[in-house]
């Protein structure tokens, strides 16, 4: 299956896929948070929560470079349809469409149409009053668009080089987001050593953020042991959002891309993938304290960045639409 493909096109596909995945993940976090905030105990606690959301979906520093204080409505707007925030849902969906537009000649027509339809409707969203209802609808629409896109890709794209680049983008983005969310959750846990219901709430939220609640509950009926949640989200090989699952599939996609062979130019990439695999497999999540876990997750995020860079170098991917 070793077929040449324009590097620019490969790059666009990779970023299209990352942007779609990023939009979906951020939309879900926001959607869950909008419900959870109804149950928050105090304004202080709530503000802190929102800052965490900001850290997961964008960058707190960037936000404060535009605004002086935390205002909930401003922030929701910042995360959804603001042009200022490079990671706003509107921007990530636009990047995805631009990337798709630049590669239209090799994408299934329906995929382009799904993204284009979102773009056409988006103009209407911007004119709607900023009510909770509209925000929820918008978030649902982002999630649906992402899922429909994935459906089109799975059901109609040949399993060739373009497909592999799309998949690699998706799995890497997903793994990184998982690590980011868990990191914030661990941090919160570490600060609040009081125990009790608080913890339950944090882990429940994390599961909801990561769309893992239903799957987790089937494996571990109604307990919410942090250790169980963490090893489920990090190491569960059957759960399609766990870090382990994502990395397994990055490896699989790269292997397909290379027709199962390791060549001189792809040697470093394969080595790095192996190192990451081993680090996840050898870790015993159950025995780690919060501090250690956070180190582990930080380290993993660094690895993802290195991997992304090596991947780009191996396939001459240049000039991405946007680098974090």
């Amino acid at each position: 299956m070793v077929i040449n493909m324009l590097s620019r096109v490969a790059d666009s596909l990779y970023w299209m896929s990352r942007n779609i995945e990023r939009a979906e993940n951020n939309a879900r976090v926001l959607k869950v948070q909008l419900i959870h905030m109804l149950e928050a105990s105090s304004k202080d606690a709530l503000d802190k929560e929102w800052e965490e959301i900001l850290e997961v979906c964008a960058s707190t520093a960037d936000y404060y470079s535009f605004y002086e204080r935390m205002d909930r409505e401003t922030m929701i707007q910042y995360l959804t349809i603001s042009p200022l925030n490079v990671n706003s849902l509107m921007n990530t969906m636009n990047y995805a469409r631009e990337n798709a537009r630049a590669t239209r000649d090799i994408l299934p027509e329906e995929l382009w149409e799904v993204l284009n339809q979102f773009h056409l409707d988006q103009k209407d969203w911007q004119e709607l009053p900023n009510t909770r209802d509209h925000t929820q609808q918008y978030l649902n629409r982002v999630i649906q668009t992402s899922m429909t896109s994935q459906g089109v890709i799975e059901s109609s794209m040949s399993r060739g080089t373009p497909y592999s680049f799309i998949k690699i983008g998706k799995w890497l983005e997903r793994a990184e987001k998982m690590a980011r969310i868990l990191n914030v959750t661990c941090e919160k846990n570490r600060k609040e050593t009081g125990g009790g219901t608080h913890h339950y709430y944090h882990w429940l939220t994390a599961l909801h953020f990561l769309n893992g609640y239903d799957a987790y509950i089937k494996e571990h009926p109604p307990t919410m042991e942090p250790k169980n949640v963490l090893s489920f989200l990090i190491k569960e090989r059957n759960f399609p959002r766990s870090i382990q699952y994502c990395m397994d599939h990055v490896l699989e996609a790269v292997t397909n891309l290379e027709d199962g062979k390791v060549s001189h130019y792809s040697e470093n990439l394969f080595q790095m993938l192996e190192v990451i695999q081993n680090e996840i497999e050898e870790s015993s999540i159950e025995d780690m304290g919060m501090e250690e876990l956070m180190q582990f997750l930080d380290h993993f995020q660094d690895r993802c960045m290195t991997l992304s860079r090596m991947f780009s170098e191996t396939y001459y991917l240049i000039e991405p639409v946007r680098v974090k």
Partner: peptide, 16 residues
């Protein structure tokens, strides 16, 4: 930007 000329030949920049 996908094309480059080397020794008066035209090439496209691919993943390989």
């Amino acid at each position: 930007r996908d094309l480059v000329v080397k020794d008066d030949m035209v090439y496209m920049k691919t993943t390989r």
